[in-house]
Amino acid sequence: MFQPSLVRRLCATIVILAASATSVLTVRGHQKPYAPDAPAYRQKGAADASIIIVEFSDFQCPACRYAVGPAKNLVALYGKDVRFIFKHFPLIQHPLAKGAAIAAECAGRQGRFWDFHDLIYEKQEAWTKDTGGMNLQDYAKSLNLDLAAFSACLKDPAAAALVDQDLKDGNDHWILSTPTFFINGKRFIGSPNLTGPGVIWIDKILKKN
């Protein structure tokens, strides 16, 4: 029959593999499904589009700024086949990002989310270097927003709650970097992956349909 040392080696191998699988699966168990929806003002494209792109982004993140153009081009390229959804994911290391996200929500309440989104990404280098705090009111003013409503909204816990909900969705879905895109559920991190493997993935889905 088997030698005792061989049996012990087999047992030891099983212990090591079981410990490895248990530790990874236990940590992985904390991953929860996320809600890919967002308020209507943070969505663009056809409601019945077969491709749904969800972006988790941070207004203070330079890589997110570089992704704005490619993402826009992608939406323009695929037209009615694509619906684009923006979700906030202000990173801890970016102290101004959450404030900017709340301000964008407030612009969204006035129907100008995408204009505000484009503007603060365009001016990112200016407001992120402003040690006195970014002047969101100036940006709101330049977009002709109702400043009284905008200021009131900045203090409204409901606007912050929307950002927090997105942050929770992102954390539940193990987002570690921004921008992270989900194209029909498949993850692509950074604009090079969106425009490279992401486009190949979109073409594959469209071919199937």
């Binding site: 530790s23 699966l25 940590v27 991953q31 193990w174 570690l176 970097s177 993850r187 692509f188 991190i189």
Partner: peptide, 21 residues
């Protein structure tokens, strides 16, 4: 190595792939 490997193995592979890239 258990801690560092577990945190990476439990997360989606694309996250670590992005770091390697």
């Amino acid at each position: 190595f258990v801690v560092s490997g577990t945190l990476k193995a439990a997360a989606p592979a694309e996250e670590f792939a992005w770091v390697i890239e």
